[in-house]
Simulated assay, not measured.
Amino acid sequence: MLDFQPWTIFFTIVNLLILYFFFRKFLFGRINAVLEQREELIKSQISEAEENNSKAAALKQEYETKLAGAREEAAQLVTDAKNRADQAYADRMAQAEADAKKTAVEAEARIAAERSEMMRQARGEVARLAVMAATEVAGKRLDTDSDRALAEEFLAKVGEEQ
């Protein structure tokens, strides 16, 4: 059977207390120091991570601001280029229209000059024919310049009446 001896129990308790104080003095102090050091390291890493997160957020905000500015600038450049292109198109269309009007005026002037030249030549030919016809009718030759001038004057009067 088991037999309990008070002195054994007493020495066991004393040994346990000595062992506890010994561990506390030499082992727990070092373990607590390592744990505190580890806790400090973790706290510093957490604060560093928070700083990095705040810096990243600031950089992200700056990037987004610059990106928005770049987009706005690009849109402004596109708008300016479109406006310049529209202005250049309008200028070229106005120039083309002016050139077309000038060409039309020149063509009308050329046509009028050619018409008057043709009319002058036709009158001269008709005057010549009239003189020839009058010569045939009169039976004599009319070649003088005054006869031709008279016939041209007559044709001019007839042309004006029409």
Rank of each mutant, 00 (worst) to 15 (best):
I111A: 12
Q5T: 12
A133I: 02
Y89W: 14
R30C: 00
L2Q: 09
F23G: 10
K60H: 12
L41C: 00
E97Y: 04
R141S: 14
L17D: 02
N53L: 09
A98P: 09
R110C: 00
T103D: 13
Q162N: 11
L155M: 05
Q162H: 10
R148M: 13
E160W: 02
M132C: 07
K25I: 08
F4A: 08
S54R: 10
E106C: 04
T135V: 00
E50T: 08
R71K: 14
E161Q: 12
A88N: 13
Q162M: 06
K157Y: 07
V158K: 14
T135F: 01
A122G: 05
S116C: 01
K140V: 05
G124S: 08
N15S: 14
Q37D: 01
A133F: 06
A94H: 03
I13R: 11
Q61L: 05
N15D: 05
Q45R: 11
E153L: 03
A156M: 03
M93D: 06
Y20I: 03
T103A: 12
A56M: 10
K102W: 11
T79C: 01
A107W: 05
N52T: 06
M1V: 10
Q121A: 10
G139Y: 03
Q5N: 15
R128P: 00
A57C: 02
A138L: 10
R24N: 15
E136T: 04
E152Y: 01
F22Y: 14
Q76V: 05
L2F: 08
F26K: 04
E117P: 02
D91S: 07
R128Q: 14
R148N: 01
E125N: 14
V131F: 03
T65K: 08
A98E: 15
K43T: 00
F26D: 04
A94Q: 05
T8Y: 09
A94C: 00
D91I: 10
E72C: 06
V131Y: 02
T144A: 07
A58S: 09
V126M: 07
N83S: 11
A134N: 01
A68D: 06
L17N: 10
A70H: 08
A90H: 05
A100L: 07
I9V: 12
D91A: 12
A88Q: 09
A33M: 00
G139N: 06
F22P: 01
R30Y: 00
T144Q: 09
N53R: 08
E108G: 03
L59A: 15
E73L: 09
E152G: 07
A104M: 08
A88K: 15
K102P: 01
E62Q: 12
G69T: 06
Y20H: 07
N53Y: 13
E51N: 12
T103R: 15
A33Q: 00
L41D: 01
I13Y: 14
L155D: 02
F154K: 06
E48N: 09
F23C: 11
F11G: 07
V34A: 02
F11I: 15
K25W: 11
V126N: 15
E64T: 06
E48D: 13
P6L: 15
N32M: 02
F26V: 02
F21E: 14
R92A: 14
A151G: 08
L2V: 11
K66I: 05
P6F: 13
K55D: 08
A109V: 10
A138F: 03
A58K: 06
K102F: 02
W7V: 03
K43Y: 00
R123Q: 07
